[in-house]
């Protein structure tokens, strides 16, 4: 241990003795369960979302709106005027929540593990498909750094969506408290929890400060940062809960549109 190195160049880690190859490990527990589970549910939800946004209305003609309730996949609503009929109006805004979730730190972890097996589980060998590992240091994954861009946009969408949810209590037919509005309210609450617990938001609000006590503004930001940090600790839970709730609400609204269900409501 002589001298002082000034750069990391030239000190690549020497090779260890870890077993290589897909699934090579001394672990005895059921390490495969978690990635399979995550992979399955993520796939189910993503496939359903694709179906709902791209297929259901254009192909089967089932409306995305019923009883003044708008499917969350289409929210906030942008009218599809000028769109070719085969293109779903959901796409006008849907890329934002998709981008937001794809670049979300939690979902990155989930799909890197479940689909890229990089790593499949801790201390478990990887398949030899990633010959050259550069991950978020190079394209395409370096784009994950744009998460905050999606955050900015998502916050705007979320605000508009809140307005829509509130107005769903007051359709043209007069005020009502329907199961649909309650579900939409629950959904947007979870969504708000998800966005508020975002790592980037936590950073922007206070995490980037070095000194919390230095000024009144910083002390205020520190207070907010502490609250967001509390939410952030459960970011994974928010992420899944809000994803499931969107799908459930969407199914509910489509069932209304199909006439399978009737929205129970208290009309005022």
């Amino acid at each position: 241990m002589t001298g002082q190195a000034t750069s990391l160049r030239g000190i690549l880690k020497p090779r260890g003795t870890a077993p290589t190859g897909a699934g090579a490990t001394s672990r005895r527990d059921d390490w495969l369960a978690a990635p399979l589970n995550v992979g399955f549910w993520l796939a189910v939800l993503v496939l359903y979302a694709t179906f709902s946004a791209l297929v259901w209305e254009p192909v089967f003609g089932v409306a995305h709106e019923a009883d003044g309730y708008l499917s969350p996949f289409y929210a906030p609503f942008v009218s599809g005027e000028g769109f070719p009929a085969w293109l779903s109006p959901a796409l006008v805004t849907l890329w934002i929540p998709i981008g937001f979730r794809v670049t979300c730190y939690y979902f990155r972890r989930a799909y890197y593990r479940a689909y890229l097996a990089d790593p499949p589980a801790c201390a478990v060998g990887e398949p030899r498909i990633h010959g050259r590992y550069r991950m978020e240091n190079a394209l395409p994954f370096i784009l994950q750094n744009l998460h905050r861009l999606f955050l900015y946009l998502a916050v705007v969408l979320l605000a508009i969506h809140w307005i829509e949810v509130v107005t769903s209590f007051f359709p043209a037919s007069g005020a009502r408290i329907g199961l649909g509005s309650v579900l939409l309210l629950a959904d947007i609450t979870l969504l708000t929890g998800y966005v508020s617990s975002c790592h980037s938001l936590r950073h922007i609000v206070g995490g980037r400060l070095d000194c919390f006590s230095c000024s009144t503004i910083n002390r205020t930001r520190h207070g907010a940062w502490k609250i967001l940090s509390g939410l952030n600790a459960n970011h994974m839970v928010w992420a899944w809960a809000s994803l499931f709730s969107i799908v459930l609400v969407d199914i509910y609204i489509h069932l209304l549109a199909l006439g399978v269900l009737v929205d129970p409501a208290i009309r005022l």
């Binding site: 750069s7 990391l8 160049r9 730190y105 990155r108 972890r109 890197y112 593990r113 990089d118 790593p119 801790c122 201390a123 590992y133 550069r134 991950m135 978020e136 240091n137 190079a138 994954f141 370096i142």
Partner: peptide, 13 residues
């Protein structure tokens, strides 16, 4: 540039 933080894919092991 040197520590290559981008290599970490936040998989949390």
């Amino acid at each position: 540039e040197l520590g290559n933080i981008g290599y970490c894919n936040i998989t949390k092991c």
